[in-house]
Write a protein that binds this DNA or RNA. Structure first.
Ligand SMILES: [Mn+2]
Ligand SMILES: [Mn+2]
Ligand SMILES: [Zn+2]
Ligand SMILES: [Zn+2]
Lengths: 144, 144
DNA sequence: TTATTTTTGCAACAGAGTTGCATTTTTATT
DNA sequence: AATAAAAATGCAACTCTGTTGCAAAAATAA
């Protein structure tokens, strides 16, 4: 957690590490991600910031964060795209989110289960795996 | 596999089992799915049928097939939606595709690995799993 | 402070998906 | 086989999501 001040400093540091200008948009969107306990989609960001930013800016900001390994996408079966902040192992052009994602059918929240490891999958002969995504749906601990 | 005649009969039977009218659109789209060795998205269906059907009809057909448990969706991290035919265990309103999906980074094909089982995932306390989706990306056996 | 680089907002556009409704096709009934 | 009832299709119009070019504004470097 941390105080508002501390979070703000962490965000500034993160942006500078990633060689990104520290702008109001980027800081506010990163704050949103850090406050939220679940993944966010584009529309969440638009509504939760109170329509203060242009849609285009939000799209570009998310793309920039993806490029720099600050956030990652979570697979869905609908056309929506969900994003969550990366913990540590991720870097520019090389995402390694070896954790399971959980989508609650009751509250709709998608969370990163950072402690839950992805098991080995033995593929048929001839297939080479680079990345494994696991999305579990069910009921989360708060909805239980 | 089977001859054209046999496939046609199987499709008719499948539609009747699902209590669906046997229409040209539905038969042609199901043929496409059965011929294809990978998953299809909406645009594939439009192009591969030679623009003969209205977009709206294709959307409605896919939705109907989903509702009846004839096809299932495959999760992606982009906004595209991929569909593949269900094998057997699936029925109306209850999809159980306990198999792994593979997306080839080389040829772009998404395939159902029907023999590859999904391992048990031990979630944190309080979480209840209803369904587990696994999507592996890498290089498929034909591209290797 | 000033110059340079980067980011933002706007406008305009492209594409994906949805809905209502009239027409056509399929299925059920006689 | 003909007819009636039900279901599916195609079209038009629309909404929603995401993209691109460019001028104005903001952030960083000098
Ligand atoms: Mn995650
Ligand atoms: Mn499948
Ligand atoms: Zn929940
Ligand atoms: Zn391949």
């Amino acid at each position: 957690m941390g105080t508002k001040q501390q979070i703000s400093e962490r965000i500034t540091a993160l942006l500078k590490e990633s060689k990104l200008s520290v702008t109001e948009t980027r800081v506010k969107i990163l704050e949103l991600f850090m406050k939220s306990n679940g993944a966010l989609e584009h529309s969440d960001i638009e509504t939760q910031t109170g329509q203060s930013f242009d849609r285009v800016t939000v799209y570009r900001t998310l793309q920039t964060f993806l490029d720099k390994g600050i956030i990652h996408k979570i697979p869905t079966t609908d056309t929506s795209v969900r994003y969550a902040v990366c913990k540590s192992e991720c870097s520019e052009h090389d995402h390694h989110d070896h954790h399971v994602h959980f989508k609650c059918e009751s509250c709709g929240t998608t969370t990163c289960l950072d402690e839950t490891n992805i098991p080995e999958i033995s593929l048929p002969k001839g297939y080479a795996a680079h990345n494994v995504e696991v999305v579990v749906s069910g009921v989360c601990k708060t909805c239980k």
